[in-house]
Design a binder for these strands. Structure first.
Lengths: 198, 198
DNA sequence: GTCTATAATTGGATAGAC
DNA sequence: GTCTATCCAATTATAGAC
């Protein structure tokens, strides 16, 4: 029952990741030292290296976990009408990103601090997520309910618009997350919908 | 006529700013050393301090110059129809940002590396730019040609969408900048326009 | 698993010669 | 205006005791 004194791998591991996530988001990867992370966790700097081979891998693992969770959490039903699938995507994207602002911030801002191999890996995951939205838009264009000149551009435009919510929205203000979801959905829906003939 | 040997303030000054802009955009402010900047310029590190009191001020000056240029370059005519004013804004924003990707990147990514006072200053400039778009949207809502639930949210949504172009578009590919402008204009126009009754 | 101590390097900024 | 030399603080990562 009694553990080795000072042994806490099951609890320290997550704390290292949490501390790194918070600090990297607040100050930036390059500006955060391993000593700062250790202080936040409550251990000495040497102990961190039981949980990550180096600082770069720590960053990469955080980004990969985030992208994996994103891909895992999104579900889409190709049998549904494109409009409903898009509505589902908009709500999901806003809510998922709102729930983890630090991870989102890091995943977008620290790409340049990844080694080339790690960068390629993360970009592939991002591409897989974009492809899910593009499939929805393409289905809608095929059936005539959507009208966009280029589904790839529309995909990037919609994702940029939705992710932008994280730069200004925090719960507890004048608007609820539901309000935000509703308003962005109206804008996205109109932006990609086919217009009724004049 | 002959200058003091080694005196090049008129040429070194801009070179310091150019080098800092490029390096900060590529690697991030915190990851770039004054020695790296000096090497890029072709001087020793001590010489840099003739052009900036410190590294923080160098960053701030780059961001402030960018925001000043942005505000200076945009022109709007409140007498024109809101739809034309919005079209003008979309084209201007895409083109201006496309022309200076490094400055745009820094202005969005390095806000957290500013001192609190400098941050407040830059944010005020950004707010002034956002207000220009919001005024256009408000005019269109008033006249009935636009329909958005909240002009502030629509402003942020449109700017996020348009600025997103910089993350993927580079001249010389499959699409011209004109193509991109046209497609984003269609999406923005539809997103904020009043829908014709069914 | 965590600690202390340390190696080896690099950082921003300054002083003083030219 | 630029250079060389330097100060002092901070960095990542490792070694070895417990």
């Amino acid at each position: 029952m009694a553990r080795t004194a000072g042994s806490h791998s099951d609890i320290t591991g997550p704390k290292v990741r949490d501390a790194a996530l918070t600090l990297f988001a607040r100050h930036g990867f390059a500006a955060v030292s391993m000593r700062q992370i250790a202080r936040e966790v409550g251990v000495q700097v040497g102990a961190l290296y039981n949980y990550t081979p180096d600082k770069q891998t720590l960053l990469f693992d955080l980004m990969q976990s985030h992208m994996d969770a994103l891909l895992e959490a999104f579900s889409d039903d190709p049998a549904m009408p494109p409009r409903d699938r898009l509505h589902n995507f908009v709500r999901f994207h806003i809510r998922f990103h709102h729930d983890r602002p630090d991870a989102v911030f890091i995943a977008y801002m620290e790409l340049r601090n990844l080694t080339p191999e790690n960068f390629t890996n993360i970009e592939a995951l991002r591409k897989r997520y974009e492809d899910k939205l593009e499939a929805i838009l393409r289905a809608g264009v095929s059936s005539g309910v959507f009208d966009v000149a280029d589904t790839k551009i529309a995909t990037l435009a919609v994702i940029a618009m939705l992710t932008g919510v994280n730069t200004w929205f925090r719960s507890g203000g004048r608007l609820s997350l539901q309000d935000v979801e509703d308003q962005y959905w109206q804008m996205v829906r109109k932006a990609v919908s086919a217009e009724s003939p004049a």
